[in-house]
Write a protein that binds this DNA or RNA. Structure first.
Lengths: 121, 121
DNA sequence: TGCATATCTGCAAAAACATGCAGATATGCA
DNA sequence: TGCATATCTGCATGTTTTTGCAGATATGCA
């Protein structure tokens, strides 16, 4: 039954889209509300073109979408639950690095949880 | 607050480990029980050394672990819930490709669910 | 010991990615 | 129209991954 192969491929592509720290942080920044490229670039302390490129990749994978307001390009998560899904992935981070202490992890967990909403996945 | 950066980095590394179709399928194969390298290689129709290398990478990320039985190396998921987590990621695959019809996706969902256990994440 | 099986490691070539920067496009306003 | 702002695209370079294959190691058995 090779029908599962395309599904694995699709999943792998989503994972690949999320496999860069900058992109993880972009999703994080977008968890609450839409943001324009310039704001994101400043908050992540990254050059604009780079943010633009990362966002383009996330958009190609339909993880984010864009709308325009004047000269600004506003990006938002297509499926806000993806932030919840990612935060649930923190369970697998636990106990991996000694440099990641419990407080750091807890802080990240709180940070990521969208407005205190309980996880739906 | 730069403390979230290492967490994003850790998450990105997990995602990277899962960002190859072969590795997604390996996790899938291991969802129910441990398997030796040779069996995995046959089931996925991949050369042995390649499977070995993928498993080594997954092990470096602590997603799988190994035990030996005679000359065979048996691999298993360190956290079986990771399979549930991945299956919940199928929600984000939905509606992405016209080549992935609903039945294929449903089949994948059933396939991945560990023994009908409901998702814990 | 000698041979077959099971798996791993190392190496070289190809492909994919990340990054920095220059220049292109598009919008808003004077 | 002309200029500044916001963002995107293209290109060159350096770094990682992936892949195939040869050879090394380790175990079991005759």
């Amino acid at each position: 039954m090779p029908s599962r192969i395309p599904v694995a491929k699709e999943l792998a592509e989503i994972f690949k889209a999320l496999s860069h720290p900058d992109r993880v942080r972009l999703i994080e920044e977008l968890r609450g509300s839409e943001q324009d490229v310039n704001t994101l670039a400043e908050r992540l302390d990254l050059p604009g073109p780079r943010v633009s490129q990362h966002l383009g990749l996330l958009r190609a994978q339909r993880l984010v979408d864009e709308r325009r307001d004047g000269r600004r390009h506003l990006y938002h998560l297509t499926q806000p639950e993806i932030a919840d899904w990612i935060v649930s992935g923190l369970d697998f981070v636990e106990g991996r690095l000694s440099t990641l202490n419990a407080e750091t992890l807890e802080a990240a967990r709180r940070l990521w949880a969208v407005g205190g909403k309980q996880q739906s996945v």
